Amino acid sequence: MELTSGWLLVVLGVVAVVAFVLLVLGYPRTRRRWLGGVSRGSEALVLTLTVLLFAGAALNDQYLFYVSWSDLLGSGASVSAAHVGGTARQAVEAKVKGPGLGPVQVPPVLPPLPQPGQRIQRYMVTGARSHVTAEVLVYLPPGYDPKAAKKYPVIMALHGLPGHPEGYFTGLHIDQTLDALVATHQMAPSVVVIPQINSPSSLDTECVDAPTAAGPKDETWLAHDVPTWTVTHFAVQTARTSWAAMGFSFGGWCAAMLGIRHPDVFAGSIVLEGYFRPDFSRAYDPITAGSAAARGYDLVRIVRADPPPIAMWVMASRSDSLSYPTTAEVLRYARPPMSVTSVLLKTGGHRVAIFLPFIRTSLTWLGQTLPGFRP
């Protein structure tokens, strides 16, 4: 019986019902009180454990944390790496359509930091075009001085769902990884901007702009408002070769979407167990199937028809039914000027422990690939 099989839920459900009935009816009945007490206690324990296992299996079915028994038991997974499409140089030197960040007017004096001397700055930002209001965390490089002439490259880091910007520090420890790479001259000091990517935060918006006027405009928030706000608040570079989007799972999809649909802003994307078509929930699906909007957010279709000039680093597990199928399609169709470096695991579920070891690898790739991030 497979871990993600529906039969596992059926078996656990039947066991739970049987244990509940036996407990309520007081079976098995015996004249010895101590034996009856042991029986009731055992049934209660079985019922509790079965209910917990049922809940865990149901969540696993939904989110695919573990995709097999071997994955659950910690069996090692083989890794294969490959490169498809053009060279990184072709991706970063190709001409792009769109204004990029060049037209943004940088104020002669940047606003003061809300927490002077701190490496992590916290803001509530309202987008001028999207009208989204959400939290944005900013991680500053060592020695950052807004009054100095030095300008830094930018990583826009995008969280998963459910998720929050804080997770990049408490769970992924991107601060420690970046500091280590900078200290060993594997990457240039960088500003990391971590916005709340779905607004409202409880809604799985898939980072798209809802076609209706009343719907959230999360793509506009991420592709235009947050970059413009960053340029006008921090000493950062505006060339697209100094901007990269990075994300995992839901955030990985968003990072891929930003790079493929907005290569004039982002020359690089890091996609950790992400996917290349939006995966809306039943509660919210603003895009009509077959519509122009649906075609526009089908990144596989875009790559197949007209590959954008972007360098991507992607990681997925072949047994992950969420991230792998569309990742495989993109790898099949990528061609110049698009450049894709991939890391594929033979097995592994859709969870942090799978992609966590590759955060350093992907950031090292960024430091070797985009000119703005080279040490």
Rank of each mutant, 00 (worst) to 15 (best):
L3P: 10
G6E: 05
L9Q: 11
V17T: 14
A19F: 09
V24S: 07
L25N: 13
R32D: 13
R32Q: 05
L35S: 12
V38D: 00
T50R: 08
F54L: 15
A55Q: 11
N60Y: 12
D61I: 08
D61G: 13
S68E: 11
V79C: 00
V79K: 01
S80W: 04
V92Q: 07
G98V: 12
P99W: 06
P99A: 15
G102H: 14
Q105T: 08
V109N: 09
V109C: 06
R122P: 09
Y123C: 04
T126M: 12
G127F: 10
T133I: 05
L137E: 08
D145F: 13
P146A: 08
A157R: 02
L158S: 06
H159V: 05
L161G: 02
L161A: 13
E166A: 09
G167L: 06
Y168A: 02
L178H: 00
H185L: 05
T205Y: 10
E206I: 09
P211C: 08
D218G: 07
W229E: 00
W229I: 06
H233I: 06
Q237M: 07
T238C: 05
R240E: 01
R240D: 05
T241E: 09
S242E: 07
W243A: 05
G252P: 02
W253P: 04
L258I: 11
G259M: 08
V271W: 06
V271N: 09
R277Y: 09
F280P: 14
D285R: 15
A289M: 05
R295L: 09
G296Q: 11
V300R: 03
V300D: 08
R304Y: 01
R304K: 13
A305W: 01
D306M: 08
P308A: 13
A311N: 07
D320T: 12
S321K: 04
P325T: 00
A328W: 06
A328R: 09
L331R: 10
A334N: 05
S339L: 00
G348H: 06
R351A: 01
V352G: 06
F355P: 02
L356T: 03
R360M: 03
T369G: 01
